[in-house]
């Protein structure tokens, strides 16, 4: 489905800051990050461990009070206090699939009831049969069997648990799904199934995804646009094509060079381009997001960006 970039964005993240204090030690988990997601779009968020991906996701679904900046959902500021009804409604419109499947599933509840929780809270059925049917249908969609309804989380393999998380999000037909590493724990054939499934559901319902992952080959495959995050900063963003064929920021270049290839001979002789912020000579505090064409933006000072562009030509 082609994304309409002239439409109003579904989600707008504006200069979002999320700091954590541990005594005197402050972690700037997210620093001045801005991006938007359009209806029906898949926005891939990539970046090294600890770069702030999960924190952004959790910020969007309002698990934190932002240190600065704001988040708009359909032009409504959702970063502040909301009335109960709006909050309740938002909870169906945005769903998050969590990174740590075991930690996000209640160990004492049956899988079917975990998946049905959202339905229960929002009274989205008229009879127990309808509820059961909806849950069975979604179980089938994510490749689980209806016999799994009565099992408990610990009785599942890692990948099966992850699919429970996906089912729980999908059942609410949300407009935005934040998928935090939702396929990393799955084997390739199920990854492919889940990714195809996510695409089908997007076709069907027009929902948008914030797809957080570190597997760049999958991100490339599923995303319309990509944002590259490092040390809490959004360093580069653009269409998948722009990022993969014309990466500008040295961090992006290093990330792309490290994608492992399922090819033993190539893998044994691979050399990734290394990148170390401390010795890079860059100063993230002095940069700005520069438009470099199309939907492509890169973060840096005027001189830095001019240098990268010169190298490109």
């Amino acid at each position: 489905m082609a994304v309409d970039y002239n439409a109003e964005p579904l989600l707008r993240v504006e200069k979002l800051k999320q700091y954590f204090k541990n005594g005197s030690y402050v972690v700037k988990a997210v620093d001045d990050v801005s991006f938007e997601i359009y209806p029906g779009e898949t926005y891939g968020l990539v970046g090294e461990s600890g770069s702030g991906k999960t924190t952004i996701g959790r910020g969007i679904i309002r698990l934190y009070d932002p240190t600065g900046g704001r988040v708009l959902f359909r032009d409504m500021d959702i970063s502040g206090k909301l009335d109960r009804y709006t909050n309740w409604e938002l909870r169906t419109k945005m769903q998050m699939i969590f990174q740590d499947p075991m930690a996000s599933l209640n160990p004492r509840k049956k899988i079917g009831d975990i998946i049905g929780e959202g339905l229960d809270i929002h009274h989205s059925y008229s009879s127990q049969e309808e509820r059961r049917e909806k849950i069975n249908a979604i179980l089938a969609k994510v490749g689980l069997a209806k016999e799994h309804y009565d099992r408990y989380p610990y009785q599942f393999s890692g990948g099966q648990r992850q699919r429970v998380g996906i089912a729980r999000a999908l059942i609410m037909n949300p407009d935005l799904i934040i998928a935090d590493e939702c396929i990393s724990a799955l084997d390739v054939s199920i990854q492919a199934q889940v990714v195809n499934l996510m695409k089908d559901i997007q076709e069907e319902t027009g929902c948008a995804y914030l797809f957080i992952a570190h597997d760049l080959s999958m991100v490339k495959y599923i995303s319309d646009r990509i944002g590259v995050l490092h040390l809490g900063r959004l360093l580069e963003t653009g269409t998948t094509e722009e990022i993969f064929s014309n990466p500008l920021h040295p961090y992006t270049i290093s990330l792309l060079s490290a994608i492992p290839s399922p090819n033993p001979r190539a893998e044994r002789s691979r050399s990734a381009v290394s990148y170390d912020y401390a010795t890079s000579g860059l100063d993230y505090n002095r940069g700005e997001l520069h438009h470099v064409g199309g939907k492509h933006y890169v973060y840096g000072t005027d001189e830095e960006v001019a240098g990268w562009l010169a190298k490109e030509n």
Binding site: E181, S184, H214, S254, L255
Partner: peptide
């Protein structure tokens, strides 16, 4: 190592 690097990005994975 049971899926030791699924939570890690490619540079740290390497």
């Amino acid at each position: 190592c049971d899926e030791p690097t699924t939570a890690l990005d490619v540079t740290i994975q390497a």
